[in-house]
């Protein structure tokens, strides 16, 4: 199994600086924090009929990268993400995080943000963010401190005592991101996190996510069916085919950072979008 052996300095520059985009084989800044997926296949049975959902999926994600997974509906991209979260066991193949196999959920290695913020409505924003630590029996004072740090990171420190029903859709999703990050996992998985939001909030949340990503220096794996969203946010886009989902290509997004909305009007953006669209359509 090929392993990243060469460690280099951080590839991320401080917020505001532009950065030339590196290819997918660029060595990780911290080889211990990569995600490795090997020979993954998945089939499931419904009423005696066997369906292949994913076929020969193999990829690595280097530390600190922003990778999106796109593909037609039903291509298994959400199932793939659930496997990366340890919530679904693949029929075949291995997933490793930080060099160690992942066979069940481990929120210290992988944080997950779901499509619906899925906050517990009976807990305040702070208590929701504390919840993962609470389950592990972390001391109350530590819990509170970490939760407040995470809420500050997503810009919601002033809403720590609000209940979820008092927050807007975008704010709820930010709380959910804080909950995913509170145990400081190297990887954050996001399953169409902005799909339920309105267009304007979705765009704002994209920029907000990029800001959080720059600051928290996490590896993000982001599942979406929005091609523009994927291109706008990512370093690389993994394109899956229709069922059974196979990797069609891994597209490097060579747009400079920080990204801005004007880039969406640039020819390069349209080119990338067109290229990915053709792959999926075929």
């Amino acid at each position: 199994m090929p392993r990243m052996s060469q460690a280099t300095a951080s590839i991320r520059k401080p917020h505001g600086a532009t950065m030339s985009v590196v290819g997918p084989d660029h060595p990780a800044a911290d080889a211990g924090k990569t995600l490795e997926v090997r020979d993954l296949n998945h089939t499931y049975n419904v009423n005696g009929k066997t369906t292949q959902a994913l076929k020969d999926i193999a990829f690595n994600v280097s530390a600190g990268r922003f990778l999106s997974i796109v593909g037609p509906s039903g291509c298994g991209k959400s199932s793939l993400l659930m496997m990366l979260a340890g919530l679904l066991t693949p029929s075949d193949g291995t997933i490793a995080v930080g060099g160690r196999p992942l066979t069940k959920p481990d929120p210290t290695r992988v944080g997950v943000v779901f499509q619906d913020a899925s906050l517990f409505p009976w807990l305040t924003a702070r208590r929701n963010v504390e919840f993962p630590l609470f389950l592990r029996g972390v001391d109350k004072a530590v819990r509170r401190e970490k939760a407040e740090e995470a809420l500050a990171l997503v810009g919601l420190e002033r809403f720590a005592d609000s209940l979820p029903h008092e927050l807007s859709g975008g704010m709820k999703q930010r709380v959910s991101i804080a909950r995913g990050l509170v145990q400081d996992p190297p990887i954050l998985l996001m399953d169409e996190p902005f799909a339920a939001l309105d267009e304007q909030t979705r765009i704002t949340m994209g920029d907000e996510l990029l800001r959080i990503w720059e600051k928290a220096r996490k590896t993000i794996v982001f599942v979406t069916h929005g091609l523009s969203e994927a291109i706008y946010l990512s370093d690389e886009v993994l394109v899956l085919s229709g069922r059974p989902g196979r990797i069609l290509d891994r597209v490097v997004i060579d747009l400079p950072r920080p990204r801005s909305l004007e880039m969406m009007a640039q020819p390069r953006f349209a080119e990338l979008r067109e290229a990915i669209w053709h792959m999926i359509k075929a």
Binding site: G86, K104, P107, F114, F120, F131, L135
Partner: peptide, 18 residues
């Protein structure tokens, strides 16, 4: 009881009792 909330608990490796 909402399925998505249970899924969050599972993703956080909560025990059955929790």
């Amino acid at each position: 009881v909402r399925e998505d909330q249970l899924r969050v608990a599972r993703s956080l490796d909560a025990s059955t009792m929790q």
